[in-house]
Nucleic acid binder design. Structure first.
Lengths: 190, 190
DNA sequence: GGTCAATGTTGACAATGCATACATGGTGCT
DNA sequence: AGCACCATGTATGCATTGTCAACATTGACC
């Protein structure tokens, strides 16, 4: 039973495999049916219910995981950025993540899952914190709660417009240029 | 047959009633099934197919209609605003529309309906134009394509964050204050 | 070794999107 | 007037989906 293949019953670590399967389906652009997820995990349609009370709970779990990943991506970009370019790098990472995982991203910030009971809100708060910190460091003079909300809105909105393809004609640029110019313009000190 | 009630067959103007029915369902927060829409319009489940090739086409039509409504709301606010406050008023109208019709709004800018063939893109372009014009008038010195993209992103993102309830703790304000402070902060000339 | 709870399975049901075949009745031609 | 046509609506059926209820399997613990 230390094999990679479990006998048949007792998959080993379903719960996790279900998340992976869902992510896989999302990644290839389909919105996942519970049954498809089960199929993909090599398990009967009802099996997921042993781990999540209903489909929405699974999707919420996936969304949370997506937010974690976004958080990490943003953190990494923030940490790796040369001095003074943290916010730019962070924003680019945010938009790029959205562009790379459009369906997942929409799920993450989608029809506010009521079951989440603030979990999603709390998770996205961690993302916001990174931005807040970077703002406080790079623009201490301008810093304010409004600036934080503004920056988040700006980056978030940009990400969504990109996903929706609504900037196609205006800006078919590589993301980096688009993000940098937009942020610079909006935030230029004067 | 000039009554308000049509006999039974030949509803009169289905196509339109279907849009209305869908909007009604959306307004009360449900995502509408084709059958529910048909029921709501007092017609058999297959009737809608005489007017829209499939569900997605109907939803796209509804989305287009929503964008028109948004456009009008934004135009009205822009026109009615006192001098120098056009952008603020316009942004507020945008966010308020989203907050008032959250499900519809998500549908409008939702999973980029492929069938739309750019129709949605074109429609949202009309909204962008209003903002563009107002920017050119109120901030001719700072005007640039990037500023336009930035403003749109900012307002759009703010609208979505509000819908998602992600600003709840940070800003339980009446919308007006939130929008005004955020925009002012982001756009202050120095 | 025997019991139990965790985990997975089977079968069924209602709702949904859609395909196919049919009904109805207003419109225009003669 | 009479009649055929065709846009519009209906009826029926199928595959898929989310979920419930009842059953099967198996590893862990006494």
């Amino acid at each position: 039973m230390s094999q990679t293949e479990k006998s048949t019953y007792h998959h080993g670590d379903l719960r996790q495999s279900l998340l992976d399967a869902t992510l896989a389906l999302l990644a290839q652009g389909e919105e996942p049916s519970l049954r498809a997820v089960a199929r993909h995990a090599g398990v009967s349609p009802m099996a997921p219910y042993r781990h999540y009370p209903d489909k929405d709970a699974l999707l919420t779990a996936v969304a949370l995981r997506g937010i974690e990943a976004l958080h990490q991506a943003v953190c990494a970009a923030d940490a790796a950025a040369p001095a003074g370019r943290g916010l730019l790098a962070l924003g680019l990472a945010y938009v790029r993540y959205a562009a790379d995982h459009p369906v997942l991203f929409r799920l993450m910030f989608g029809p506010a899952r009521p079951r989440a009971g603030g979990a999603i809100c709390a998770a996205s708060e961690t993302v916001r914190q990174v931005m807040l910190h970077r703002l406080a460091v790079e623009a201490p003079d301008r810093f304010s709660p409004e600036l934080a909300v503004g920056c988040w809105s700006l980056i978030h909105g940009l990400a969504l417009l990109v996903i929706d393809g609504l900037l196609a004609e205006t800006d078919p640029d590589p993301l980096a240029g688009l993000v940098e110019r937009t942020l610079r313009t909006m935030l230029r000190p004067a």
